[in-house]
Design a protein around this nucleic acid. Structure first.
Length: 631
RNA sequence: GCCGGUGUAGCUCAGUGGUAGAGCAGCGCACUCGUAAUGCGCAGGCCUGCGGUUCAAGUCCGCACACCGGCUCCA
């Protein structure tokens, strides 16, 4: 006899049975896909063998979706096994928005095979094949996968597990190593879709074989699945590469793979961004420098880049001497620091640089403006005394928060990355540096994720990540603490004691790469940029050819106020002009015709609000002046 | 770099071995127009490049380049 209680307080006594039956008796079975029994997630078909607390995991919940998707991955693997005998299986987890399975499929597959697999999945689902869990010893499991399944990947995974016992899930002939829980039978998986096929290295290591990864997704109901598909389609329409072309912001040409071209309208945005950036940095006590793109190779050997970053660098020659194109701004910045004797009174010294860097990226990783081979970092190097480090870090975090959240309204996440392999410096220095970053994060009360082993080769870092339109996150801001460079370059300042001391150096960016940040701006606003940054802020639309002259006069008057304005002089109907201005996502249109010319006014239209009604020029200027601007 | 896919007009795409097409954009003409597409006409192509198969290649094969989705790597 077992007594099960649900969190609400209800309880039930059962002679025997399963977790699912207990939930049903408690009236909590509806929508359940699995259960939590004494804090452990279990299958609904888990046989009861203890008293305790039980609660349902519903299919719609995050945890439930996770289980559903994991089961969908199993179903897909089962379908692949039916269709492609001899397939071997890597891992098949649920992920954000779906699931995947990495498989070694004899003969391989392409996206054209997905409908066939999906069909087989539906066939198997319809048959309501029961899912069964079996625990066995590690040795038995290894033997099973080696001898029955001939699957070296599963054998490898099991061999490395710590536990003595492992659990296997069976459905029909298909078996998989899995912790579970899973749905009770295959018919529970109804609302799914296979999405794409890709290559993926076994265990994520490029030295290993490449498996075929099939991505898919599953939801608790058809509406949620369709909503997801729609969302992905809508996301495609705001892809920065597409909008970059449609709005004539930038282009990428085969002549320069990874080297973007910025068109006039794109440059307006870049310039607005940097104008704002400069003003904000002045306010926050930064000075600005600029260092050369090409510097002697010895500098890079000295900085450690030759040893740690050579693969990503471009090299050239001047008068038969070796030079390198800078992949980072720090060595140049340090030469500026060293150009004179520094006093403790100068510290903290904050030197910013909009530095263009070139990095050799492998051909397969390029992605619009998000991942390029030449980009402009909104870099800064801060030199300070050890006791100033924490406040400086907090100051940078404030600046990031201000720009991301207050100015642009972005959500962001923070990561703390610690010492990587192949790094410079002592254990002790890294310890101090990592603790300093942690303290600053804690003091500011920032939430962050730990990312062990992902620091720069010269120091640990705090990274700020922003999201693109389909949920991929991109690193933008970064704060890196560096004890190495000041050492390598023998940076000093004269202390109050008259002696030389070693400054601590912080590298940081806020926007990260102007190019990437621009890409994120495009996607975030779907091309409908805020007024202050919009390439064209207002377009004047004469109702007919007769009013072109007046339209030009209106444009001139606005232009004199510094407003970015243009006139649609084409011989088209008003409806067409409005439509085109809307498609170009121009914030304001100003219609002018007989009435406006008579009164000397305009009839403005705002892209989201529509017709604002006729008004005087003075009033229109006021309306424009009321628009948000961060500077 | 690796796996898979794609490459035809400025853009989006038809064209499955036999004379290169459409819509939008562009240009011209007419219309003189009031809040999301006026009509008619014209022009626009080394079908990514280089090789090969074939009487014949946009179409089939190979290589290269670029791009797309992932993996690894990264701002």
């Amino acid at each position: 006899m077992y007594e099960l209680k649900e969190p609400g307080g209800k309880s039930v006594r059962l002679e025997e049975g399963t977790a699912g039956e207990a939930l049903k008796k408690l009236g909590a079975g509806k929508g359940a896909i699995a259960a939590i029994l004494n804090g452990r997630a279990v299958d609904l078909f888990h046989p009861l063998n203890e008293d305790g607390e039980i609660a349902p995991i519903t299919a719609g919940s995050e945890e439930g979706l996770d289980i559903l998707r994991h089961s969908a991955a199993h179903l897909m693997a089962q379908a692949v096994e039916e269709l492609y005998p001899g397939t071997r299986y890597g891992v098949g987890p649920s992920i954000k928005d779906g699931f995947y399975y990495d498989m070694e499929i004899p003969g391989g597959i392409t996206e054209e095979d997905l409908p066939k697999i999906e069909k087989e999945m539906r066939r198997l689902a319809k048959r309501s094949i029961p899912v069964e869990r079996r625990e066995m010893t590690k040795d038995d499991a290894i033997a099973y996968f080696r001898e029955v399944k001939n699957d070296p990947f599963k054998v490898e995974i099991i061999s490395e597990l710590e536990e003595d016992k492992v659990s296997l899930y069976f459905q029909g002939n298909y078996a998989d190593l899995c912790r579970g829980p899973h749905v009770p039978d295959t018919s529970w998986i109804k609302h799914f879709r296979l999405l794409s096929v890709a290559g993926a290295y076994w265990r994520g290591d490029e030295k290993n074989v490449m498996l075929t990864r099939v991505y898919g997704t599953a939801f608790a109901d058809e509406e949620a699945l369709e909503a997801y598909i729609r969302r992905m389609e809508e996301a495609r329409s705001r892809d920065h590469r597409r909008l970059g072309r449609e709005l004539d912001l930038f282009s990428l040409q085969p002549e320069g793979p990874g080297f973007p071209f910025f068109h006039p309208k794109g440059m307006v945005i870049m310039n607005q961004l940097t104008d704002f950036w400069r003003k904000e940095h002045v306010k926050r006590g930064y000075s600005e420098i600029r260092t050369p793109l090409i510097l002697n190779r010895d500098l890079w050997i000295r900085s450690g880049h030759w040893d740690h970053y050579r693969e990503n660098m471009y090299f050239t020659e001047i008068d038969e001497n070796p030079f390198a194109i800078k992949p980072m701004n720090c060595p140049g910045g340090m030469l500026v620091y060293k150009s004179q004797i520094r006093s403790y009174r100068d510290l903290p010294l904050r030197m910013a640089e909009l530095g263009m860097v070139h990095r050799h990226e492998r051909s397969g990783v390029l992605h619009g403006l998000m991942r390029v081979r030449c980009f402009t970092q909104d870099d800064a190097h801060l030199y300070c005394r050890p006791d100033q480090v924490k406040d400086e870090i907090i100051g940078i975090m404030d600046l990031c928060d201000f720009i991301y959240r207050e100015v642009f309204g972005f959500k962001y996440s923070i990561e703390l990355s610690t010492r990587p392999e192949n790094s410079m410096g002592s254990e002790e220095q890294w310890g101090i540096a990592e603790r300093a970053l942690k303290e600053a994060l804690d003091e500011r009360g920032a939430e962050y994720r730990l990312n062990p082993g992902d620091g720069a080769f010269y120091g640990p870092k705090i990274d700020f990540h922003l999201e693109d339109c389909i949920g991929r996150t991109w690193q933008c801001g970064t704060i890196q603490l560096d004890f190495q460079m000041p050492e390598k370059f023998d940076l000093t300042y004269i202390g109050a004691d008259g002696k030389e001391h070693r400054p601590v150096m912080l590298h940081r960016t806020v926007l990260g790469s102007l190019e990437r940040f621009f890409g994120i701006l495009i996607e975030n606003f779907a091309g409908a940029f805020p007024y202050w940054i919009a390439p064209v802020q207002a377009r004047i639309l004469p109702v007919a050819g007769d009013f072109t002259e007046y339209a030009r006069k209106v444009a001139d008057e606005l232009r004199a106020e510094g407003i970015r304005v243009e006139v649609d002089e084409r011989d088209e109907k008003l409806g067409k002009k409005i439509r085109d201005a809307q498609t170009q996502k121009i914030p304001y249109m100003a219609v002018v015709g007989e009435k406006e010319r008579e009164s000397g006014g305009v009839a403005p239209r705002e892209r989201a609000r529509g017709d604002l009604g006729a008004m005087s020029m003075a009033r229109f200027k006021e309306v424009l002046a009321e628009e948000f601007s961060p500077f």
